[in-house]
Design a protein around this nucleic acid. Structure first.
Lengths: 345, 345
DNA sequence: TTGAAAGCGCTAACAA
DNA sequence: TTGTTAGCGCTTTCAA
């Protein structure tokens, strides 16, 4: 370890012939500094290439920051589990920077809980909020109240289109629908139609599904495909097989599932031995991975839940600890996963 | 900002009835502490959930760390430019943590320079080294000397198979060859052979190319494809078109290029209007991206140069600043890029 | 408008 | 084996 010394506020003070207190005030526009000294100090700081030591700064400031995270309960499903593990992976670093996380887990079928937490968050006045607005109305309301309280908000996973500019971190749903269409088109050799399956659409997901479906449809329409797209809403709780049997009567050559429930169609294809029907869908959850390996699912789109989560929290770390600005929307790469690149994820 | 107070070393001292000096020694096994007090202090620390304040620690230690980075010159090509921009993106953070980077750029066709830098690095004794061992022999030698000097080394981008265990950060070349074969197989509808192109193989890249080619070949062999694989070494400087014309006489239905020079084949296909020949290759460089958009390249494999670089430097940041262990080999996800997910990267 | 000084939580040198 | 103390570079309060 070398002791590579950088100029500090003390050096500036010496060179400018003032005290460190004055330097501090001059550099931070805290007023009460003669215009003249201020200029001199700034000039010297620039000349010697002064960079504040941020560790010392936050030590001295003794500032502790709270970031609230409002997301679906990870015990509920694997996708949100992956999200949470992404957040967790940064907790040690964030705490080292004096940034503490307050978590709020709502249920995907309990809008009231979401609203209750929204209220609680407003009351607790955190320094930042990361939220997955699965309930767009309540989400929008919370966003606006945070705005009023000037609490920065990162919108996570699903965007709120009403807000502009916002800071969204997630994937472009429409685009990922297009991508699935392209892939399906590329790998489907035989003639036939494409089927879009929306499985078990709860209120809190319907927006996502439709957006993806739209992307899929538009790609097919705009790329002079000879195929038609048929959409099916499937309720996996009641008579699912009958619903699927009916759907597959339409000469289906390729399927697109708009959610992680891709495995439901995969298992159906396996059971019915439809080896020549292609299937693409979403998310690297265990059941999907299994079917991908076996060849019943051809492509999975990975929305990169861990990384999205890390990026979100990291944005706040950089903001609060390093005073970087929070940039506007950041769309995440849409990852294509197939048998051969699965293990590398 | 709230002032959420955490227990510190002072609290432990008070509770244990000793001085903070003793607590410090007890917690850091610096010896010279009665076995008894040590246990007591540790117990109390555990009970009150003591976590050291790392900012204060590094401030007090005043330790400055140097990490050497030995990579090809970014002005030479776009791929290494992307790598370097990945490193750069962490410089502000790393400096905040007292970690300073010393850079060494060698040329891809100048082994001597690599060796010269290797020597220089050994002399300067940095606290860590990140190197892309494009010249395996010299690279291996440097690695061993660092080992002797107990300087941790991260092997970047290309692995040195002789070293085990090492800390490699990059993609699995063999696996990415397999992936390309799978993709090509999926999208090639018509009959015909697959051509593997190794373009302008300098000494410093041949290992990579061969490894990818092997993966490609093995996939085709082991997945009862009816196709054969033909390998071609192309020298783009002399009579390239003739070489390619000769190659394409072999009823080629799909092409695989083992490097970023995929665009060379793409441009050839475009010129000869071979719209029905599929093409997959590597790296998101501008010329490739253009041809991907136009449809002359079907898939590109992204080795994620920026992210690999970030990960490498980040590993050292976590090591030196947060005292995390450096984990063994870390293979990076192999990203599949096609027209529809291109902009999201 | 300025300077002096205390202290953030920890390390490390020195004294006891 | 232990306690004391002087910093690390910066912020902030108080007095001048």
């Amino acid at each position: 370890m070398k002791t590579h010394d950088y100029p500090g506020i003390k050096d500036i003070a010496r060179l400018a012939g003032v005290s460190i207190g004055t330097v501090d005030r001059a550099l931070h526009n805290r007023g009460r500094v003669a215009c003249d000294t201020k200029r001199r100090v700034e000039e010297i700081a620039r000349q010697i290439g002064y960079k504040p030591n941020l560790m010392a700064r936050s030590l001295a400031r003794k500032s502790r920051t709270t970031v609230a995270i409002l997301v679906p309960d990870p015990v509920q499903d694997e996708y949100w589990q992956q999200v949470w593990s992404g957040f967790e992976s940064l907790f040690s670093i964030s705490e080292h920077q004096g940034i503490y996380v307050r978590k709020f887990f709502y249920s995907l079928d309990d809008q009231d809980l979401f609203s209750k937490f929204a209220e609680q968050i407003i009351n607790e006045k955190p320094d930042g909020l990361i939220m997955a607005p699965n309930y767009p109305d309540s989400g929008l309301k919370l966003f606006k109240e945070c705005e009023k309280a000037s609490i920065p908000v990162i919108i996570f996973d699903t965007n709120l289109p009403e807000i502009n500019p916002s800071c969204f971190i997630g994937t472009d749903l429409y685009q990922s629908g297009m991508l699935c269409a392209q892939l399906l088109e590329m790998i489907t050799h035989r003639q036939g139609n494409f089927a879009i399956f929306h499985i078990d659409a709860p209120l809190s997901y319907s927006h996502d599904m439709l957006e993806k479906g739209k992307g899929f449809n538009d790609y097919i329409k705009n790329n002079n495909s000879k195929r038609s797209c048929l959409s099916f809403m499937i309720d996996s709780q009641h008579n699912m097989e009958a619903q699927l049997d009916a759907a597959f009567k339409n000469n289906v050559a390729g399927c697109f599932v708009s959610t992680s429930k891709t495995w439901i169609i995969g298992e159906y294809l396996k059971k019915r031995k439809h080896a020549d029907i292609k299937l693409v869908g979403f998310d690297l959850i265990l059941k999907n991975i299994e079917l991908l390996k076996e060849g019943w699912i051809d492509f999975l789109i990975n929305q990169n839940p861990q990384q999205q989560a890390r990026k979100s929290l990291n944005t706040f770390i950089n903001h609060f600890a390093f005073h970087e600005e929070i940039k506007a929307d950041e769309y995440f790469p849409i990852e294509i996963i197939t048998k051969s690149n699965l293990m590398s994820v």
